[in-house]
Simulated assay, not measured.
Amino acid sequence: MRTEPTWRIPVGILGLLAALSLYGIAIANFVHPLIGGWAGLAQAAIYAGLGLVWLLPLKRFLIWMETGRWG
């Protein structure tokens, strides 16, 4: 087991924060104009789905942060 921290963890956290910020800005700029007039429940469903999509590549990214390998 690793006892010393690696550069991948802080870099990975900063990268994740940057990517999530850009993703949120993109969703706000591109999706909201399309669904802004929809019923609130329909908007909530779309935003909930989009809020979960970013989790799909997260497992491989976390593995990279810990091991340096992508899988």
Rank of each mutant, 00 (worst) to 15 (best):
G15V: 07
A28M: 11
G37V: 07
G24Q: 05
L52W: 15
G71S: 10
T6S: 03
Q43M: 12
L41I: 02
L55T: 10
V53D: 13
T6G: 09
W38K: 04
L62Y: 07
I25P: 01
I9Q: 12
G36W: 05
L22M: 09
L16N: 04
Q43K: 12
T6L: 02
A44L: 15
M65E: 04
H32V: 06
L55H: 11
F30E: 04
K59A: 14
E66C: 09
T3R: 06
Q43G: 11
I13A: 14
F61A: 06
P10I: 08
F30N: 05
W38C: 01
I63M: 08
W54G: 06
K59C: 02
A39E: 05
M65K: 04
A48Y: 10
M1N: 09
W54R: 08
I25S: 06
A48W: 15
T3K: 09
S21P: 01
L50Y: 03
G40L: 09
R69Q: 14
R8L: 00
V11N: 06
A42E: 13
P10L: 03
R8D: 07
A48E: 09
A48H: 06
I35W: 02
R8Y: 04
V31R: 03
A18Q: 07
R8M: 00
A28Q: 14
Y47H: 09
G51F: 08
A42W: 15
L16A: 02
M1V: 10
M1S: 15
